[in-house]
Design a protein around this nucleic acid. Structure first.
Lengths: 337, 337
DNA sequence: CTGAAAGCGCTTACAG
DNA sequence: CTGAAAGCGCTTACAG
């Protein structure tokens, strides 16, 4: 089977390949008759343009790369969903690339990535948005990028985030309003800026309600279910036992719930549990988890949409967006007895 | 900043670009001295070859596309993990493309995909591996593909699967061995070949243990958590209530567990629940789900590895693989009282 | 061991 | 409205 190229089409239609190219790209300055003729040959020959040739001539690939290093699978899924939605609207495709923030290999790894596949832009999902070394590398390579859910920055890069500090404040306040004063806290992964922000929100809520901060109630997690199990063990072993636990994400909260249930504690009667993110698991378990709904898909979609339009028009000024999160109360939290 | 290309390197090093190309590709027939010199210029100029130009000349993109249409997010995650592992080993990248099996748009959608990004091959994850129309389309377009977890086929395509029928047989037999005779079954999505196979395994186990098949115990699900809730409602409303439920995947089993718990039923004392897949949720809830561990990552990895080697050497004969699954018993199933 | 020429399949810039 | 020429940055096939 002979490959059909722009040249075959041109000779079959009896026009120049530039004219074929015009039809292909819906450019003006082609007579209706010529356009018809070329379109007909497209069908006859079952012609589709070669994206690589196009890419070489235009120096574009129409591919966005998505970088992640995240222990929460559902978070990754949500990020992908948002990125894919933006790509689809703009006829872009999404290439996914998990990699490790820690270790000296990251920059080499990304260099290798850019060497195998030309990417028109890159979306940096947590924790990469906070890793300046990577941003600088991309800047040097002249690869546009957008940050999702990173800390607020003073620079002029594309960034879409939500207010983690405020969300954590609200959910802590929710627990306080239910009468809880002894509220344990499980931190997230130290490389993620959200970790510090959620912790800050927790502390601010305690402070503004006159509850003294107690370091013994704070456990170091890393957003994984497994780390939640370890933290839960320490917390449930405390004496006196806290009356509520606020975990920095839903996976860790689910781990607390499982361990508490295994230990015959009734949730929320004996202990209230709250999470963060509104991951699917928050509503797949019983009791459902009170949590903060973060618009992860929407954040990523907006970031990638802006990234793509920036690729097309680099002169436009990038802007940063902060989206709202909101409290969702389910059955895992209740008034203290 | 001037772009640095193979030509800049060639002139700086005082050699032809063909020689630069030889060094780039580790080809023989370059004197050590010349090689050194060129390598040095690579560093000086911070040169990296343009993957698109390379792709055009070689007619390759080093990108594999992953097609999916699956209600189970964790299944998608596992598929991606396996595909990424294979890609990484072979310096390939992975492009993800969710799309809808139903509807007339699928072929157009894929055509559009191939038109924007050249793909060296495509991995078809459930339910696409069973959709002949798509396979034929790809064959016509000359795009190599590999099937994951599809039905056993007589053709000579690349396919890696596991034995769903046998897995379902074993887990049903496990329930029977615990004394259960009234075992409800929740089917998966009708477009997935696994759905029929798991149902067959369930029926074969009943038959071989002399338990009469009862249609009223069978519910139609679609692998989503939500469909599991609906099916659970019907099943738990039955009178007499079955003593065990076998759901075709863990999401639906988790839904049964949640509803049962909400209704104050004790699992497994009042009712045993079994799932399929060994998804993360199976161990994130209490009681943990008895299930069949399917090597989804490994299946996909093997499929993509074979796909990539087939791309490099199309003359080699593809082969089909069936991997073992295994029963994992947790706390959600117990002997009947 | 090395290189000049042609080609991959498009688009850009220019001319008419 | 249309086209001839040059170019994108590599590799392939050939010659020496």
């Amino acid at each position: 089977m002979k490959k059909v190229t722009i040249n075959s089409v041109a000779s079959h239609a009896g026009v120049s390949k530039k004219t074929v190219s015009r039809v292909l790209n819906n450019e003006p300055n082609v007579s209706a008759a010529t356009r018809e003729k070329v379109l007909k040959v497209f069908k006859e020959l079952d012609y589709t343009p070669n994206p690589i040739a196009r890419g070489l001539a235009q120096n574009r690939s129409f591919i966005i790369g998505c970088l992640y290093d995240n222990p929460s699978k559902s978070y990754i899924t949500r990020v992908q969903t948002g990125a894919l939605a933006a790509c689809k609207e703009n006829n872009y495709n999404l290439l996914i690339h998990p990699c490790e923030l820690r270790g000296d290999d990251l920059i080499n790894d990304i260099e290798q990535l850019l060497q195998t596949s030309r990417l028109d832009g890159v979306v940096l999902t947590p924790p990469f948005g906070d890793f300046e070394k990577l941003a600088n590398f991309l800047k040097a390579k002249n690869i546009p990028y957008a940050r999702v859910a990173s800390a607020l920055l003073e620079d002029d890069s594309i960034s879409v985030r939500s207010n983690d500090e405020q969300g954590a404040y609200e959910i802590t306040e929710h627990l306080i309003s239910l009468g809880h004063k002894s509220i344990a806290f499980i931190k997230g992964h130290p490389d993620h800026s959200a970790t510090q922000q959620r912790f800050n929100g927790y502390r601010r809520a305690l402070a503004s309600h006159g509850i003294e901060f107690d370091e013994r109630l704070v456990e170091e997690g890393n957003f994984s279910y497994h780390s939640g199990v370890d933290s839960a063990r320490s917390i449930l072993d405390l004496s006196p036992r806290p009356t509520a636990v606020f975990a920095s994400n839903d996976y860790m909260a689910a781990a607390v719930l499982k361990l508490a249930t295994q230990r015959q504690l009734r949730v929320p009667d004996d202990i209230s549990i709250a999470g963060f993110d509104n991951a699917p698991i928050a509503r797949h378990i019983w009791p459902g988890l009170t949590t903060i709904a973060q618009p992860v898909e929407e954040m990523t979609k907006q970031a990638v949409t802006q990234l793509i339009s920036h690729i097309a028009q680099p002169q436009e000024q990038p802007y940063q967006v902060t989206l709202e999160s909101r409290l969702i109360t389910r059955e895992s939290t209740a008034a203290i007895k």
